[in-house]
Design a binder for these strands. Structure first.
Lengths: 332, 332
DNA sequence: TTGAAAGCGCTACCAG
DNA sequence: CTGGTAGCGCTTTCAA
């Protein structure tokens, strides 16, 4: 019981394939009785158009590619899920790839996607990515690209949150609740996301005349282990921090473990605020005050930007999705 | 700068496409100098084979479909990620769909996948699914299927964990640590996964001569809210439970919230064990004793089962991935 | 060693 | 209203 094709339907009914094609697509030029016969046979035999033949014919794949540092990470999983559903509404399929937050793997992902002839790509670059030439190359071969979550000073459309601004909110909030020595736990300094957030943090410290102590700023590779190590170092300082800002979910959870391992209480001994998803904040105990990033909107906007480009819009757009601090129990 | 095709290469070099095709694929029958010319031109022009033409030609799509109740849920995200990487090793692409844990959406997902002419499908059915005819239908149209995580008494290959056995381990462990009134928080009774786990739980109670109190067994729709409601009801009983077994991540976290809202302490006032991913257990506080489900192995085995079928193996296999209790801080 | 032609499933165009 | 045909990019078979 193989799948039936238009040609086979045509043969059975002794008509031409082109007639079958028209009938199946509801085009004019087929008598209604013949159309009925064709449609009912197609239905009976479970006819499904072959999308590969259609793609080949139209030279269009109706497929887009997604690259994320880790699909199983809550934040990205939610964004990807939303991009998918938006894409499907417009008849696009998604190919999802995982760069493992590594530059080399990211290049492989893009290569795979280009091989698959995707019509566009939505990507959150790896934390290692400082050279964007592989992405800019995509535009040369006419593959529209949208960056999200992490962008850079390149001429490519992007969707990010108001990074510096949220860091300001967080820092001010901590100061207002009595924190004197706020530590900053970020990603690599070369990531614009990190530098922006750090900038917001430093700005507020300056405004409030709080001395900036660079031993309280830890910007290293983002991973659970480095978060653990960095936090333990912070807690071992002669004057340890009484608050921590962590710019990534992994850094939040690892920092909390480090704090716990030292027998300190949150928020009494030390406060913590993280950039993390609401759901993870809710699971943690105490619930973590967090920067709500609205993954749904990021997903929607990212697809929209790509969709516009797919439809011929050539201007580069930078969308800022407003994120805001949500206080829970890890701050005073 | 359009993508270049074999024909164009052939035209430029004044040779035939078939020669180009052979050269590009490294087949015999091309002089090495001509092959060199072809390869270098292809490279220079960034030639990429059109996978749609190849698929059409071979009548094979090298694509498989995945259906899960919620891609953004940690447990499934990890399994999907693993299936993807296994599939890629064998040259298969994955189309990932999300049934939202609903029967109707699940049918739509399958329809979409069949339309895309996937060569096989790996699916975790929704909690609403009791009728498996839509899945059995797939076999009629020669689309191999593998169930995972949740199976049923149907003649389809599957990968699940040792459900009843893990429930036994959990129950025994709780009894040994002094629990007298163990509640069971499960999914719908019609789900085999639930009934198996419940069976293990009840069996141990009988063996240990512990009276079975049916008000301690709550098997309803799986959701955060129902978990909350059910747990609050449990805690309001004249003789509330001193331990809870929760068979789904959502039920674990909601139960913990309910417990917290009543001002009870874990594990002193009430113990809890959950079927959840290690990562979520690690984030929670106290760390939750959990049934380690080894998502990687589930993913690997699920793809292997499908791959075997794709290669002509017709026998139905049921694989049991050994899960085991990992005790943390939520039990004594 | 190279070329020519057919065909995968579908659609578009032109003819009857 | 219906049929015939060419062609999307690729591979395969047969012929030169």
């Amino acid at each position: 019981m193989k799948r039936i094709s238009q040609r086979e339907i045509a043969n059975i009914l002794n008509v031409n394939v082109s007639t079958v094609s028209r009938a199946l697509r509801g085009l004019d030029g087929v008598s209604s009785e013949l159309r009925q016969k064709i449609l009912s046979l197609a239905k009976e035999q479970g006819y499904r158009p072959n999308p590969f033949a259609v793609s080949l014919r139209y030279d269009t794949t109706r497929t887009i590619g997604i690259v994320v540092p880790d699909v199983s990470f809550n934040h990205y999983a939610h964004i990807v899920k939303r991009i998918e559903s938006e894409a499907r509404k417009e008849g696009y399929m998604c190919i999802i790839t995982d760069s493992d937050d590594k530059f080399e793997t990211e290049k492989n992902c893009l290569d795979l996607l280009v091989n698959m002839h995707v019509e566009g790509i939505i990507i959150c670059v790896s934390q290692e990515t400082t050279d964007f030439s592989h992405i800019q190359h995509l535009r040369k071969v006419h593959v529209p690209v949208v960056l999200f979550d992490r962008d850079a000073d390149v001429d490519i459309s992007s969707v990010i949150i108001n990074d510096a601004d949220t860091a300001r909110q967080v820092t001010e909030n901590l100061i207002d609740s009595g924190a004197k020595r706020i530590a900053f736990l970020g990603g690599p300094n070369k990531m614009k996301q990190t530098s922006e957030r750090k900038h917001g943090y430093l700005e507020v410290l300056r405004e409030r005349n709080i001395p900036i102590r660079k031993e309280l700023v830890k910007c290293n590779y983002i991973s659970y282990n480095s978060g653990l190590t960095d936090t333990l170092e912070l807690l071992s300082l002669p004057q340890p921090p009484d608050a921590i800002i962590a710019t990534h979910g992994l850094l939040v959870t690892s920092a909390m473990r480090a704090i716990e391992s030292r027998g300190l209480r949150i928020p009494d001994d030390i406060q913590i605020v993280g950039y993390m998803s609401d759901w993870v904040s809710e699971v943690a105990s105490p619930r973590v005050s967090f920067v709500e990033q609205n993954q749904k909107e990021i997903g929607v906007k990212a697809f929209k930007l790509l969709f516009d480009q797919l439809n011929g819009d050539t201007c580069v757009q930078h969308v800022i999705v407003k994120a805001r601090l949500e206080t829970r129990e890890s701050t005073k």
